[in-house]
Amino acid sequence: MIIIREPTNPEKLKEMAEPFFGLRIKLAVDVAREILAGGGELHFDCEQLLLDDSSKQENIWGADWYPITKEVGFESIINIRPRQQNVTMEVRNLQLKSRIEKIVRYLLEVV
């Protein structure tokens, strides 16, 4: 697992996608700091890495990056947060989804 703070390269993407045979990268995205952690087997693992790096839990959301199709997924157990008005695994707030996607694409969408 690694923290990505600036646009990455294909080698790091490949390393982060290894647990899922290159098909998916599990992520935790800090929407306040505009960074992400990826490469764990669980979103929770990535979330812990960001928490250890001084991120605040209320700013961290689970997502997935699909390198082949360049799509972002928004479902994770760590997204169930009734106190933040998100009662499902999927991020429901459209503005928040847009922000997460913007950060993921900026950091991971290698051209």
Rank of each mutant, 00 (worst) to 15 (best):
D53Y: 06
L27S: 07
P7H: 04
E109C: 03
A17T: 04
I77K: 14
Y66N: 03
D45E: 15
D53F: 03
K12T: 14
N86D: 09
D30K: 09
V111N: 10
V87T: 13
F20S: 05
S98A: 13
F20K: 11
R92G: 15
V104N: 04
V91N: 13
I25P: 00
E18W: 03
L13S: 02
M1P: 08
Q85T: 09
I68E: 12
I4G: 05
S98Q: 14
R92M: 15
D30S: 14
K70N: 11
E90C: 09
S55D: 13
I103N: 10
E75P: 00
L107E: 01
D52H: 12
S76Q: 11
L108D: 07
L107I: 03
R81L: 15
R99T: 11
R33A: 15
I68K: 14
E101A: 14
I77Q: 13
L108W: 08
D45G: 09
A63P: 02
V31D: 12
L13D: 06
Q48D: 11
G22F: 04
D45C: 04
Q57S: 13
R5D: 02
V87Q: 10
D64N: 15
I100K: 09
D64R: 01
L50T: 07
V29P: 05
Y106F: 12
P19F: 07
M89R: 14
I78V: 09
Q85K: 14
R81P: 13
L36G: 08
S76N: 11
V104K: 07
E41A: 07
N59V: 01
G22W: 02
S55H: 12
N59M: 09
L108Y: 06
V104R: 03
E15V: 08
M16P: 00
V91I: 15
K70P: 02
C46Y: 01
I103G: 12
L49W: 05
V110G: 06
R5F: 00
L36Q: 04
W61E: 07
I60H: 01
E58L: 09
L94I: 15
L49P: 05
R105Y: 02
K102Y: 10
F44L: 05
K97F: 06
K14Y: 06
E6S: 03
L42F: 10
E41I: 10
I100T: 08
L36E: 06
F74L: 14
I3A: 14
V72K: 03
Y66D: 02
I80H: 10
T88E: 14
Q85W: 12
K12C: 04
D45P: 00
R92A: 15
Q57D: 13
C46F: 01
V29G: 02
